[in-house]
Write a protein that binds this DNA or RNA. Structure first.
Lengths: 155, 155
DNA sequence: TTATACTCCGGTTCTCCACTGGGGTTTGCA
DNA sequence: TGCAAACCCCAGTGGAGAACCGGAGTATAA
């Protein structure tokens, strides 16, 4: 079964990789306090993510130091630090593989190019600003609030 | 020769299509007043863009109503309206093929998905806000200012 | 009429995304 | 000690899109 897009083709093209990673971390957040690891299978079935694919994403998140893994029987994944100390930027940048910055010497330097660089940089900063603003904890709280709204509509 | 990126892999991934299109329109802007068309070849060689590729982009811009074309000998392209009446959003959205919006019924509606949609939308709006802010005329003026700076450094 | 330009169509190479699969290694527990 | 449950690593695949190239056709100024 193919996935349903959260959001259609976007100027800011946050791929489903980022969505999946975020969903997984949202799933892990409530378990941070207890220290109990969660298994890939559980996360995958809960959020409807292909498990073998999620495995790769979690490996990336682990290498970036956002989650820890517990090998062997009864192992799994858990958040490496408090959910309010992980921003969406942390998640997206490591999954999407943001480069640090442009090396100005490697870049075209006609006046036109420099002007476009400036604006492109502004767009980038605007987008990153939003991602810097939210932590995993914020997202969890938003989700809980949303859940209340959904229940109200259901009644 | 392969192109040199204006900006490295960007969260907001504005492809070289957008860059090329913008460069071309920047080239056309000063000729708007005179009404003299500019040929693909001239634009391409001036801005170092593969001409056959630029041709496709200009065709897209024409279909979007941003430029007009004059066929036959001494033909070429010219801006369809004043450079201060064309925003960067106009350019990027038609080149990048932005969709109008998400169809909410087509979209996952778990609480998690809705929350992520919300944030993704914020990121999108932040990025688009910057693109809405600038017109071609602004870019031309920025370029001229930049040119002055370059000359100062050169001396 | 002819050279010059755009127009339309197709193909090509490359990279990335979104997966899938096949091994291997570590670890808790009976 | 053995074994199954979990992570770990590597490799490949299919499709889509980016970034081109090329050719045949069409309009138009001179």
């Amino acid at each position: 079964m193919d996935r349903i897009a959260l959001y259609p083709a976007c100027p800011v093209d946050l791929s489903s990789k980022s969505e999946y990673a975020l969903l997984a971390l949202l799933e892990l957040s409530p378990h941070y306090a207890s220290g109990e690891p969660l298994q890939i299978r559980q996360i995958a079935s809960q959020q409807n993510i292909p498990d073998r694919y999620l495995e790769q994403l979690l490996a990336t998140l682990r290498r970036a130091g956002l989650v820890k893994s517990q090998r062997g029987a009864r192992g799994g994944y858990l958040l490496a630090r408090d959910p309010w100390k992980i921003t969406l930027y942390d998640v997206v940048s490591c999954i999407e593989g943001f480069e640090p910055q442009a090396d100005p010497t490697q870049v075209s330097n006609t006046p036109e190019a420099q002007v476009i660089q400036g604006v492109w940089g502004e767009v980038r900063q605007a987008a990153e600003g939003v991602l810097h603003k939210y932590t995993l904890q914020d997202m969890v709280e938003k989700r809980n609030a949303q859940q209340q709204v959904d229940i109200m509509y259901y009644i």
